[in-house]
Structures are given as C-alpha cells and as structure tokens.
Computed example of a mutant assay.
Amino acid sequence: MLINIKIKNEEDILVESSNIRMYPVENRFSKKFILKDCSYLKDIEKVFIDFDFVFFIIEVLNKHNESAIMYSFNFRIEDFKINQNNIHLLGVPIIDYDANNYDQNVIDIFMKWSEDKVIPFLSLDDDYKKSYNYSCLIWSGAPDEFNDSSYNIDLSLVKSDIDFYNMMGDYFFGNRGYFGHDSYSFEDILDSINRNLKEKIIIVFKRYSEISFQDKIFIDKIIRKKYQNIKFEIY
C-alpha cells in the first residue's frame, strides 16, 4: 500500500489503517474521520474514553519506495464508534499553522494508486486537478532529466493552467509525472533539465496557438527563450 495512517497516543500506536475518509460536520468545526480495515489495540475503547487527544500521522510512499509524512495533526476526540475493523472518530483536528492542510482528494488519489488505478486527470474538477498535481509532486518529485530526445505534444485539450501543467507532467514523464504547478516551477524544472542535458532535445507543441489559459503569457516567454540544449517548435 502507498498510504499508511497511524493514530498515536504519546509513543504508542493505537490504530493503523490504509483507508481514511474525512467528512465535514455542518455548522461545526468538528470533522468525522472513518478508518476502514483497521488494526488496533485490544483496549482501544478505554483509551479513547480516557484521553481527550490523539495524534494522526499519515504517511505515503513515493516511486522510490521512500516514506514521507504528508499530514500530521492532533485530534480532540468528541465521540467515537468501533464496528469490527472500522473506526469512526468525531472531533476537531488541530493543525499547526505551518503544516499542510488535510486534503481528502490527495488521500483518495494515493488510495487509488495503491490499487494501480490510472486517474483521468483531464476529466477532474479544478480542485481535484490541483490535488492531482500535488500528488504527482509527492510521488515523482521534481525531475532533472528527460526520457526521450524528441516530443510531439498535442495541446488541444488544455483548457486551464492546471490542465497545461498536468499534461506536461504526463507527456514528458508518464503516468503520475510532475512538471510544475505554475510558470515559476515549470521554468525552474526546464532550466534544471537543460543544464543536465548532453544532447539536443526537440519539443513540438501542436495546436498551441489555438489554446488559451491564464499563464500562457508567461509560458510564451519561457518556451521562446534560447536554451543551449532544448529547442521548441510551436504550431
């Protein structure tokens, strides 16, 4: 599995799972978390009753099989229910100001990837597309080399900034590939790859003149720069 959820109390692991979902509670700060197929301590009910707070740690594996903490936060327990291997927790997550905000879309994406599902990113809504982009960054990291010496890319399906960046990641680096989330990160990656290249690369953008998206004015400047080892051909 690519995702692992732990609920801890001080140093003890109380619950482990690879399936979690958060639900908002109307007109309250509280959230409801449902963890499925859990393993947990035999006296977990007593622990939940005796302690007001537990600590969530959500880790993911990247393509290099390296583990990283994606989300971690304290959780104030208001109520709970245990049904066989499923645990329902109601309470308030307390997230540090400099920590990543919990994104259920990212969790869902890693759970789908754990089942080797391919996600059709162009059919997602805008928020989900951004979550997909962030998931690709966590999975792949920022690349530093191209896999081929030439690319022919049809951009006719690009409708927005995030479409462009997700499509770039997929075309250049395959499923779950990452090539930036804005014009700055796109340019940084391109410059880094250019410095590492030992041979010329040709990139053909087909139907680029027909598409429109907010960042295009910046992308125009980036792809029209003179690179030592990269040549763009635009149609």
Results as ranks from 00 to 15, higher is better:
residue 57 I to E: 13
residue 119 I to T: 10
residue 127 D to V: 06
residue 104 Q to N: 15
residue 116 D to P: 13
residue 72 S to W: 03
residue 130 K to H: 10
residue 60 V to D: 01
residue 41 L to A: 10
residue 94 I to D: 02
residue 93 P to S: 02
residue 51 F to S: 04
residue 42 K to E: 07
residue 116 D to E: 14
residue 80 F to V: 09
residue 107 I to S: 10
residue 58 I to G: 00
residue 49 I to R: 09
residue 118 V to T: 09
residue 72 S to A: 07
residue 91 G to Y: 03
residue 91 G to S: 08
residue 41 L to N: 13
residue 118 V to A: 04
residue 125 D to V: 10
residue 106 V to A: 11
residue 124 L to N: 02
residue 84 Q to T: 06
residue 87 I to P: 03
residue 76 R to P: 06
residue 124 L to Q: 05
residue 90 L to V: 13
residue 43 D to W: 03
residue 62 N to E: 08
residue 53 F to R: 02
residue 119 I to G: 06
residue 52 D to V: 04
residue 103 D to E: 15
residue 98 D to P: 08
residue 92 V to K: 05
residue 49 I to A: 00
residue 54 V to K: 00
residue 62 N to I: 04
residue 83 N to T: 04
residue 68 A to L: 10
residue 114 S to V: 02
residue 57 I to A: 03
residue 70 M to I: 13
residue 51 F to M: 04
residue 121 F to Q: 01
residue 102 Y to E: 05
residue 89 L to Y: 03
residue 96 D to C: 08
residue 101 N to V: 04
residue 51 F to N: 08
residue 124 L to D: 02
residue 107 I to M: 14
residue 110 F to V: 12
residue 69 I to A: 12
residue 90 L to D: 08
residue 93 P to A: 01
residue 107 I to F: 14
residue 131 S to C: 00
residue 84 Q to M: 03
residue 45 E to S: 15
residue 133 N to M: 09
residue 81 K to H: 05
residue 130 K to R: 13
residue 70 M to A: 08
residue 84 Q to P: 06
residue 91 G to C: 07
residue 110 F to L: 15
residue 71 Y to K: 05
residue 44 I to S: 02
